[in-house]
């Protein structure tokens, strides 16, 4: 019963907020933000634990598997542009990974957080399942890593477009690499609005960042912590 309420309720809210976003296309109105806030607030108000909600939430989360596989489709459609810009894309992805790791490391060192929080935050730019696995490998707290991963994603989806605009980052390749490798799948949700080229470069960046990050994150910890 609870499964059905959660699944139908979330789909209902999602449809409602998608319609609302079409009428008021403000960055803070993206359905991911509005649906999440309303769901989270409802759980808190009605005192429903997250684990109860996840009995149904898991149904939706399970669809993330085939949905990630589905990204092979835009990738295939845009294979010409990817092959053409392979050097830029690959170097951009490695740059993003290194910049992300170094900046978060320096800032958290400066703030002076305990090591477990540091290890929890380092994999923030990797897509959720990989980020959580890497977090576990290096000694972080995986569910909390998922939260940081989501924040990194939100930043890409909400503030990302402003950064691209003011940085005059206007090619499909650079947009896709920047947002895809720093903000993974949640960032892709926004890249979709730019076009299929951005989306496909972004999904390639997300995938390669996950693969490269799975090796680079533990190496970084080994070298610097």
């Amino acid at each position: 019963m609870i499964e059905l309420i959660v699944v139908l309720g979330t789909i209902g809210l999602f449809i409602l907020f998608t319609k609302l976003y079409q009428r008021f296309p403000h960055p803070l109105m993206i359905p991911l933000v509005t649906t999440t806030i309303v769901s989270a607030v409802s759980l808190l108000v009605f005192n429903i634990p997250y684990s109860t909600y996840m009995v149904g939430g898991e149904w939706l989360q399970k669809m993330l598997g085939p949905a990630v596989v589905a990204l092979a489709y835009p990738l295939y459609n845009q294979r010409a542009i990817i092959m053409k810009y392979k050097v830029s894309i690959l170097s951009g992805i490695i740059l993003a990974m290194v910049i992300g790791l170094v900046t978060i490391f320096v800032m958290l060192k400066w703030i002076g957080v305990k090591e477990s929080w540091m290890l929890t935050a380092l994999p923030k730019s990797l897509t959720t399942p990989v980020g959580m696995q890497v977090s576990e490998t290096i000694g972080g707290i995986p569910p909390l890593t998922a939260v940081f991963v989501m924040i990194a994603g939100f930043v890409g989806a909400i503030i990302g477009p402003f950064v691209l605009k003011y940085g005059k980052i206007d090619s499909a390749v650079s947009r896709g690499v920047a947002v895809g490798s720093a903000s993974h799948g949640v960032g892709l949700v926004k890249l979709r609005e730019y076009g299929e080229q951005e989306l496909s470069v972004g999904s390639l960046s997300m995938g390669l960042t996950a693969i490269i990050g799975a090796f680079l994150c533990p190496l970084f910890v080994y070298l610097f912590l």
Binding site: T10, I11, F14, I30, P31, L32, T35, T36, S39, A40, L43, L44, Y50, Y53, M54, G57, E58, L60, Q61, M63, L64, A67, T128, P143, L144, A146, V147, M150, G153, F154, G185, V186, L188, V189, R192
Partner: peptide, 15 residues
């Protein structure tokens, strides 16, 4: 795609 991310993001309330 967005729909499938929502359960994970709602997880913030546990922290």
């Amino acid at each position: 795609l967005t729909l499938f991310f929502i359960p994970a993001t709602v997880g913030i309330i546990d922290y």
